[in-house]
Structures are given as C-alpha cells and as structure tokens.
Design a protein around this nucleic acid. Structure first.
Lengths: 147, 147
DNA sequence: AAAAATTTCCCACAATTTCCCACAATTTCC
DNA sequence: GGAAATTGTGGGAAATTGTGGGAAATTTTT
C-alpha cells in the first residue's frame, strides 16, 4: 500500500482552512473515515495522521508506563497537541490555533507527504530547516540507507 | 528479467509531458500497471521507477525509525519529491513542476535507462555532470568492479 | 435570554489537470 | 526501397481541484 507522497504549496484561507492535495487524499483508506488527527510535529511543523494510522500510534502510547516520570511526560505532551479534524466537502481541514502558532503558519503552507503521515509547514521555516541540516540529500541517503 | 537500457533525446511539450521510449516501456512488468513513480534523483536529474519497483523501495523506507532525526529527515525528503504518474494513451508521463525545476528541465530531455529505473536529465546538465566526474569510464570500472 | 462570535454547511468561480483526437516522424516489415 | 504500422508531438474540450465567501446552526459571552 503506497504512502503519502509529493509536495504542494497551498494557501490558508481567511477561516484557517487548508486544502489537502487530492493525490494525498486518494491514499487514505476507508477506515480513516475522511478524518485526520493533527498534532505537533517533530521539527517545527504539524503532522496529520489519517485516523486509522493514528489509532496504531495511540496503541503504542498506551503501553507506556504511567509510573515512569519520563513516559508520563512524553505521553502528556504527545496527547495535548492532538486534535481530530474531519475533511470538509472540498477536502480541506481546519487547524486549531495552538498548532498554527506552534508551526508559525500564516498565509501560505507547504504540504508534504511523508509515507504514513502528512506534514504542514510554513514554507520559509522549511527552507530554514533544510539549510540548517548538516548533510545534503545524497549524503543523508548514504548515511541512512547504508553504504 | 532485463532492465531499462538505452538513451533518447525527447522534447517536453507545453504541458510538461515527456514521452517514455517504447523500448523502455516494453521492459515494465504488468504489476507496474503502466505507472511510474517519479522522484528527485541523486545528482541533478529525475528518477522514474515502475510502480512495482517503487513499492519495494517504500518498504525499506517504512522500516526507518520515525523517532530518529536523520531517518525522519531522509524519509521526509525522499517522499516529498515523489509522485505517482500514469502513462497516458501515448506513453507519456507528466512531470510535476517541483521536479522539473529541480532538474532544470526545459524544452528537451535526455532519457536514460539505468536497469531498475529511468533517469530524466537536462541534456547540458548531463554533460556537465560527466565532465565534473573525477574518474573516467575505464577508471571507474576498475574502481567499482574491482581489479 | 439575547447578542456576539465561532463553526458548519453549501454554493460559485477560476485554475489546473485529465482525457481524447489529429498529425508528423520514425521504425518495421515485406 | 516503399507501404504499413508504430511512435512521438501538440492541442482542444471536459472534468476535477483549489479558493473564497455567504447563510444557517451552534456555542460562548454578557
């Protein structure tokens, strides 16, 4: 089953709605019920998981030990940013304010597919992120995928 | 099963469509469903994988650790450039704008077979690449294939 | 309970993409 | 070497997709 791919630069309309590219929407399974769970991403962006994928992650979080201080801290921060959002009839989602502020999103967004989830970035933030990474694409590939 | 071979210089039409040489199309298996996944190549070109080959690669990507920063960075960059594109009735694919810009493609392209994938280059970029390589063909052969 | 603000649902427009057809160049076959 | 088939190039029409906004419904505040 192919994952989310591709990139798109879309606008955020006055009501805070962001279109999800139709190519990406087409990758959702029926069990996702046209619903995403948005949450604080790693690096300065928003992650959006289709509902069915999110449930798998929640299962993992459920297995954390509530008597371990670090486990507790991670679960707390992981869950506090998450929101369920349904696609409207035009395939858009409305991001909650805390996430918009965290990611620094304004008029334009960069929407990225990253296999099991979608990422929503402020375009300039993404450029900054890429520039700050020490390894370029080819080097990264060699490091991660092995020689 | 023989891989993609050969080279061709084809034009890019006003809509960004590029013909895939019929010799190469003939190498695709039925499981590829006349579909390629195009993505950012290593070096300044576009890679096109038949769908079935691409899925094998995605399986490898899926095994990366989402909590490891470098793994995440690679998956993000690998997937964001990828697009599924079907061959039209005339055996062409339409490249997405980001890939065209990345590879610097204009009116003409050089299409290369490279065993499991096809490469699409701006012809001059390919010449520059060859000239910039430190080892010539014979030396490279000795280095890579062993003495 | 009424007013204000927010959210949800629906509709309209513009841009893009997809689909289909026509023609020209090349290759294949006899 | 010439005719037929295949292959590459281009463009118009139709369908889809992204963008924005109005009105109804809901929630929050006063």
């Amino acid at each position: 089953m192919p994952g989310f791919k591709g990139q798109a630069t879309y606008s955020v309309d006055p009501k805070g709605r962001i279109a999800i590219p139709s190519r990406m929407r087409a990758c959702m399974s029926l069990e996702a019920q046209n619903t995403f769970v948005t949450t604080r991403g790693f690096e300065q962006c928003v992650f959006a998981y289709p509902l069915d994928e999110w449930l798998k992650i929640e299962d993992q979080i459920a297995s954390l030990n509530p008597y371990d201080r670090k486990h507790r801290a991670f679960k707390r921060q992981f869950m506090m940013w998450a929101e369920e959002v349904a696609l409207d009839s035009k395939g858009r989602i409305a991001l909650q304010r805390p996430l918009i502020e965290y990611a620094g999103i304004e008029k334009k967004t960069l929407v990225l597919g990253s296999q099991r989830h979608i990422e929503i970035w402020h375009p300039e933030r993404f450029d900054e992120y890429l520039n700050a990474e020490e390894s370029d694409y080819e080097t990264l590939a060699a490091e991660v995928m092995g020689i």
